[in-house]
Each structure stands twice: as C-alpha cells, then as structure tokens.
Design a protein around this nucleic acid. Sequence first.
DNA 1: CGAAGGATTGATTAGTCTCAACGCAAGTGG
DNA 2: CCACTTGCGTTGAGACTAATCAATCCTTCG
Lengths: 246, 246
Amino acid sequence: MSDFRSPLTDHLSAFVDLTPADRELLHAAVSRNVHTLAARQDIISDGDRPRAVNVVLEGWAMRYKQLSDGRRQILAFLIPGDLCDANVFILKRMDHSLAALTALRYAEIAQADFEDMMAASPRIAKALWWSELVTVSIQREWTTNIGQRSAYERIAHLFCEIFARQQAMGFAPADSCELPLTQLELGDATGLTSVHVNRTLQQLRKERMIELRGRRLQLLDPERLREVAMFSSSYLHLDRVRTPAR
Amino acid sequence: MSDFRSPLTDHLSAFVDLTPADRELLHAAVSRNVHTLAARQDIISDGDRPRAVNVVLEGWAMRYKQLSDGRRQILAFLIPGDLCDANVFILKRMDHSLAALTALRYAEIAQADFEDMMAASPRIAKALWWSELVTVSIQREWTTNIGQRSAYERIAHLFCEIFARQQAMGFAPADSCELPLTQLELGDATGLTSVHVNRTLQQLRKERMIELRGRRLQLLDPERLREVAMFSSSYLHLDRVRTPAR
DNA sequence: CGAAGGATTGATTAGTCTCAACGCAAGTGG
DNA sequence: CCACTTGCGTTGAGACTAATCAATCCTTCG
C-alpha cells in the first residue's frame, strides 16, 4: 500500500528512479510544513529574505517581476511537483516574487531538512539538481520565445510547453490539459497585451488548433501546433536515467 | 608573491572571502586545460554532450539558441571569470550553444576535478552555487527586459548590466567599459533588428547618455541611464562590494 | 587597392499597443 | 430573487513601435 507518492516524487521520477526509502524521505520533507494560500497572494515577495524551499502540492503558482512603473513580467508557471529555488538560502534577498495563481497548497522545506535530504540520498540530490537545471533551461527558452517569436508562435509555444509538462507529470489525459490562466496573465507571461492575446487566441481557434473552455486547453492539432511554435521538447530534459534502484 | 589570482577567483570573490588554499585550488583547476578559440567559433554546440565546466579567462563568449528557421537569440554574455554551467554533467545534451564572441581563452574543468574542488572547500562550493544562482537571476532579468521594456529602455538596461558586471570584476575604470559587440549581436540579445538597434543607439547618443567608439562603451550620464532603464543592480547579488583592482 | 563586414540612412509596411466601449457570467448583498 | 458589482473576454479604430528592404558609406585589413 503506502508507496509515498506525492507530486514531488512524481516530478523527480521524470528523471531518476527513486527507491522506496527516497520516496519516504521526500514524503516526510513535504509533509512537515504545508500551507494553503488564496489565489493572487504572494508566497514570498521581492526583497524578502528566502526562508525555505517551496514545493507546489496543489494548484498553480507563478514567479514574477514587477518593474518600478507597474509593468509585470511573469517568469514561470509552477505546477504541482515543482520546486522553487533549491539553494536560495545562499542569496540574501529575493530578486523576484512568487505568488499563487489559483488556490494553492504548498510545502515549505527548511534549509536543514533540504540539505539533510540531499546528503542522505545521492539519487535525490541528483534529481533535485536536475530539476534546478531544467528550471534554468525553461527560463532560457522563455527568453528565446519572447525575443524571437511572433505573438502567434509565442502563444503556441507556451501552450506546447504547458501541455508537455503536465503530460510528463501524468495529469494530461489525451490532448488536453489544465490552463487556469486569464488572458492578462498569458499576456504578462509572453510580453503581450491581453487584447492582443485575445486576438491571437481567436486566430488559433479559427485555425482549429486549440479549443479553450473553462480552465481547460484542448489541443485539436498538436502536431501542427508544435510546428508553428517550432517546439522541441528537448529543453525540458525529460530523459529518464535508469540507476539501479536498490 | 604568487597569490593565485585569476579571473575566476576575482569573480567568486565578489561573494565570498577565499582563503589562500582556495585560491590555489581554483588556480590549479583553471590551469590544467586551457584552450583558445577564434571569434565566432562554438565552444560547445546545441545537442552536444556536456564535457566539462568552462571558465572564460580572456575575451567574451555568449550563450545562444538558434530556431529552426535561423533566428538567433543570444541568451547571455560571458566575460572573464564567468563559469558556464556548473553541474551540466547531469544533463545528457546541451539545449543551447556556447560560442566565442571575440578571440577567446578559456579553461575546461573536468567533472571529477570540479566535484573534488567543491568537496574540498565549502567556501568554493558556496561561491560556485552563488555564481550559478546569479546566472539564473540574470536570465530572469533578461526575460523581463525583453518582455516588458521598449527598445530604448532595453538597450539602456543591457548597457547598465554590462557596465555593472565589469565594474564588479574591477575592470571598468571610471564610467566606461568594454563592449566588443556588433549591432547585430546587440539586436540578437535584445530581440531587435540591427537596424533598430542602430537607431536606438543614435537616440541614446543624441541625448548624451552614452558614447560608443571602437569597442568601448562610455557612460556619459550613468544616473539618467539607470533611470530610463529602470535598472537596479540587486539581481546581480553583488553582496560584497569589490575594491577596485590594484 | 580591393574586399568584406559593419554602420548608417530612407521609405514603406507589418505587428502590436492604446484607448474605449460593451458583453457576459458569477458572485454578493439587500 | 433581483439589482448591482466585479472580473474577464471581446470588439473596433487609430496610433506608433519596430521590422523589412535596399542602398550607401566607412573602416579595417589582407
């Protein structure tokens, strides 16, 4: 029975085979200090001293930066299983904020627990670093997305990524996935206005590539979507390493 | 006499106090395997298997991504002392490329040496992670820069960053620094065409904020430049302020 | 001296933003 | 249960930023 599954173990399993002991460790770490938060509340704000490693358990969160004149850039979407900032302790202050996008459940892992866990299991340590490196890789892809692609390609690319990540976590049945974002949020993530996001979505719909109802994204033609987005999932590094689980 | 100074020790000293033993370790790591490369040559290409941690010793390098249709996004500029990708070994394939922008001297640190060094000195380990976290932080700022700022603000911001980083390393006398980049490269870094970069530079010049001759950038009015760029150096996490090079 | 890469300029166009209004659905308080 | 509010999506017109295309000019360098 109890095999200690959690979003975190599922997330890390995309990269390494965890032993039952690993799972137990991770489960414990993620159970000690669980919080809930309403949508739109900050988990931690720009300028704060980092307290802990946060792990999303339920709901979506985001990383964002606000310019002095109010413009906001969303830097990342965090879905269940995602970690925020392994090793943030090293930095004295947050240079951006984390906030709940939906009602959120998340766990805080204290610095000491985090370090103990990495010391206790080389597999966990490796998986955590993998997760961290993937985060950076995604950030680079976002820079490229915003810097080089047109609005149309950009939204298509974001959708491919969001779908691929949820699929990797095993919670994307068939060709659809959750998308609990407003058009304003999509705009702040892609460097577009919500008005233009709206028109771009209409075009994607008209061309029968996507359907968007409620908080669900339906990919009607994933192949063509990936093509117009020039999407290749390699930057997500979803290649499993099979280390003999002992 | 030999106090084992190198661009790498200078870089890491922006964050921690290194002991003489630390410096010696770092110096050794960076001396074992030094390469030179002509401008425009790849150090390592997208899709390659990561070999080693690279450290820039002389000249500038860049991190970039190329879309399938040829568009290129420059993701980062690397100056002497900068490390490329601590722990890349964990990933199987590069998801972007590294290339020399100018004639380049760089060192390769083998995986084993890198890990030994981190194990041998907690200060070095911490400093290396600091460096890694700052890299990510800069990447997030670039996303924000491209996503939210106008061409004018964007170029101004990039210049502020380039200047601040060189100043932190102690090789920016007064209000000027190196800028060995073509307008095309500036464009690929900021998501603009070289033509528009050219016009934006003219405006910055006309307004007496910068001067740009040869491969040098002169800040005529750093204060105002920072203001229009909405630049705050906090994301560089230069917690320790360097004393000017002697 | 000629070639080549880079910078500059001009004219035109495309893509995205701005502003402003309106529609619709869900939630709230009386 | 209705009137009101609020948040989000949609639409239109017009303005403006940045891209495109195409020369031309400079500089550097072999």
